[in-house]
Design a protein around this nucleic acid. Structure first.
Length: 381
DNA sequence: CGGTTTTGACCGGCGC
DNA sequence: GCGCCGGTCAAAACCG
């Protein structure tokens, strides 16, 4: 999302939320589609590939997710299967480290070629981000099957409520320099195979349905098990071959949620935590965690800084009315959640120099927060 | 006291 | 069949 905002950066370096979050205009605005389309066109022009339109739907995610017929329908984002902003919001690195910088999903000038990375896992795409210690840090996100997924709830429009990781990641991979990560893992072969698939995608502009819903992220973290907004219960730990650092096994504690997470430290860099998510949360993060997140955000330390934030989560349905009682609450909560995420997004300098911190980063971030808050406030009012 | 973590044991898949 | 390995179980310990 932030990356999208960046792509639409105006000459002042600001990212008006009205364009950054065209879909946040919760009222059915016939012009919003037009605006969104305009932004989309500009982005598409910059990115060099066609971006399916974002759709705004008034659907009841709760009805789908929780089968509660009385809940007031709440506006949620319905992202077209062909495009989703979720990776940007979900990108832990984007939300985690104020000093980290994201390589935008578009060709950017750079003095030196980014550290080569390749998608890993059986269905991963790769995003390259940088950070002070790791100039180009990969985020690897597994791609869930597109469409036809039994367990991914869909809205009235049929678009998945669970954020889609497929095509947008592929799109990101398209315009970046996906290459090889020095992982040496036994998944490398599969990685290469999938890269070939991505190449096909690039050739034909067709999204290939990935076979796995696993998602893998490699993030920097001082913690062995960084908080990601969800509650996990550790059920095992094992030292696996090829890595002296033990691998920890976590299960989501949410009743009925089968999502699992494997966390292990990178062999080469213990500051890198590799988190592999198995499954997709079809529930929202614990409300207290969200509130805690907001509170912590203001104090500069939050779960949004968690490197693994959001992977495998369900941000577009965060605004279920189960969280807050007011009919307006769902919208507010969603907005707050997005704003929380936005507020933690570091600035996205187009000109990135090997992870060096843009001196204007903080200022730019502040401005973004300020603008976003103001615009959001205006929307709310 | 309820939830979480720890940790050794157990199980199934896979290669030899 | 055997051993290795990754993943899971479950009881005890720990913690707030």
């Amino acid at each position: 999302m932030k990356a999208l905002a960046m792509l639409d950066q105006n000459e002042n370096g600001l990212y008006p939320i009205s364009e950054t979050f065209p879909q946040t205009n919760v009222s059915p605005d016939p012009q919003s589609e037009q605006r969104s389309g305009g932004l989309r066109d500009r982005m598409a022009a910059k990115l060099g590939f066609d971006i399916p339109p974002l759709e705004i739907g008034r659907v009841s995610p709760s009805a789908n997710l929780f089968s509660n017929p009385i809940l007031v329908p709440s506006p949620i984002l319905v992202i077209s299967p062909g495009f989703s902003l979720s990776p940007f919001l979900q990108s832990p690195n984007m939300l985690s480290n104020s000093s980290s910088q994201i390589v935008p999903p578009c060709p950017i000038p750079n003095d030196a070629p980014p550290k080569t990375v390749e998608s890993s896992g059986d269905a991963h795409a790769t995003m390259i981000i940088s950070n002070n210690n790791l100039p180009h840090q990969p985020i690897e996100v597994d791609l869930p099957p597109q469409g036809g997924s039994d367990d991914i709830p869909t809205g009235n429009s049929g678009a998945p409520l669970v954020p889609s990781f497929d095509s947008e990641i592929v799109a990101v991979a398209d315009v970046m320099n996906p290459i090889s990560l020095e992982s040496g893992s036994k998944d490398d072969n599969k990685d290469r195979e999938y890269n070939q698939e991505e190449d096909k995608v690039e050739d034909h502009n067709v999204v290939v349905e990935p076979p796995s819903r696993k998602r893998k992220s490699q993030v920097e973290s001082e913690e062995d098990h960084p908080d990601d907004g969800f509650r996990w219960r550790k059920y095992g730990q094992k030292v696996v071959t090829g890595n002296a650092n033990p691998r920890s096994y976590y299960r989501c504690t949410y009743t009925g949620c089968e999502v699992k997470k494997l966390v292990e430290k990178n062999v080469d860099n213990v500051k890198l935590v590799v988190a592999t998510y198995d499954g997709i949360h079809e529930h929202v993060p614990p409300p207290e965690r969200i509130r805690k997140s907001s509170a912590k955000n203001q104090s500069g330390s939050s779960i949004s800084q968690d490197p693994t934030l959001g992977l495998g989560m369900l941000p577009s349905s965060v605004s279920t009315s189960q969280l807050l009682p007011s009919p307006l609450a769902p919208q507010m909560d969603m907005m707050q959640y997005y704003m929380d995420g936005l507020s933690k997004l570091p600035s996205l300098p187009v000109n990135q120099n090997h992870g060096s911190v843009n001196r204007d980063d903080e200022t730019m971030t502040d401005r973004v927060i300020s603008d976003g808050t103001e615009v959001y406030k205006a929307i709310r009012d």
